[in-house]
């Protein structure tokens, strides 16, 4: 394997890890506040559809992004209503949201566009297009002939859409918000011991809704990235289990922002390698089944969760509705 192939694979890793990262951080806010969210997948899917659909109709990807976030926030609101206000089962609510998104996106896509559950292909201002850094080479042949440093600059660092850089910025922002602000302290506390937060006179319900709301916004961006940056349009079930891989990454990262970055990039690498079986064969000298690589994030999550490699302890009040004592 030459250096350029490595750079190419890392480039694909970044592209594929970004939706996982955004969804993972979304889950992090929600679960740190004590609300389990297995509806990440559904929220991403809904956002992917509405971003692409509205971008296609209005011709502006920015309006599309807002629509995607709005759709995701709506589902977050449903989840909040079920799990915070009506103290229902958070897991069941998440399952319902996943199915709601899976069904509604196809239903609306068919009704609006009649193209078998997809949106028209997006182009130009309807998409988040790659941003080329100054001096970066753009064609593959030019990059291949350039020096290693230039290859990294042109292929790996430059040429991603705006959302990639935004997603990478959300990691330090999440860290700062959670560990360096009063809101973050309270948010973490409400996931560990809501009664204590309540005693201190801070609204448990308000904090949890805020966390679920942030989760919705991040899932919305993740979905918009899928349909307007990674691909050019919405196709049925395009989130393809990414919400669950993000959930796996969240456990792998033990609910910490920087570790979420590492975990999602590791899982992104697996996805990138799944697309390049020739490279794996060349490097380790034997064939690895594609199905195995695809299942690796799930297998690793099971192993991590079982505590064979360090212990993953979720926020203590996670999944429990808070009932005020009288």
């Amino acid at each position: 394997m030459d250096f350029f192939t490595l750079v190419q694979i890392l480039d694909a890793t970044v592209r594929l890890a970004i939706p996982l990262l955004l969804a993972c951080l979304a889950g992090l806010f929600s679960e740190r506040a004590g609300i389990f969210d297995i509806g990440l997948e559904g929220k991403m899917l809904a956002a992917a559809f509405f971003s692409a659909a509205i971008a296609s109709i209005t011709g502006s990807v920015w309006i599309g992004l807002l629509a995607g976030i709005a759709a995701s926030l709506f589902l977050s609101g449903v989840h909040g209503l079920a799990s915070i206000t009506f103290r229902g089962n958070q897991l069941i609510s998440g399952v319902a949201i996943n199915f709601l998104a899976a069904g509604m996106t196809v239903l609306i896509a068919q009704s609006w566009f009649s193209q078998g559950g997809r949106t028209p292909s997006l182009s130009g201002a309807e998409r988040f297009n790659p941003i080329d850094f100054p001096g970066a080479l753009t064609t593959t042949n030019e990059v291949k002939a350039a020096s290693p440093l230039m290859q990294v600059y042109s292929e790996l660092l430059s040429g991603h859409s705006l959302l990639v850089y935004v997603a990478l910025l959300t990691v330090p922002m999440t860290w700062w918000l959670l560990y360096r602000t009063r809101f973050g302290l309270r948010l973490r506390a409400v996931g560990e011991n809501p009664a204590a937060v309540d005693t201190a006179g801070v609204s448990v319900v308000g904090l949890r809704y805020a966390a679920v709301g942030i989760c919705g916004i991040l899932c919305g961006i993740a979905g918009a990235y899928l349909s307007t940056a990674l691909q050019a349009g919405f196709v049925k079930d395009m989130s393809a289990g990414r919400g669950f891989i993000a959930l796996a990454a969240l456990i792998f990262a033990k609910w910490r922002p920087w570790h979420a970055l590492y975990a999602t990039f590791l899982f992104g690498l697996f996805q990138a390698l799944e697309l390049r079986p020739d490279v794996i064969e060349a490097v380790i000298g034997m064939k690895v089944q594609g199905q195995f690589l695809g299942a690796l994030p799930y297998i690793m999550t099971v192993v991590i969760l079982a505590g064979f490699v360090g212990k993953a302890i979720p926020p203590r009040a996670g999944g429990e509705p808070y009932v005020k004592e009288r």
């Binding site: 449903v78 209503l81 079920a82 799990s83 009506f86 229902g88 089962n89 958070q90 069941i92 609510s93 399952v95 319902a96 949201i97 199915f99 709601l100």
Partner: peptide
Amino acid sequence: ILFTGALD
């Protein structure tokens, strides 16, 4: 699922 489960 939503109405019989989560929003019971």
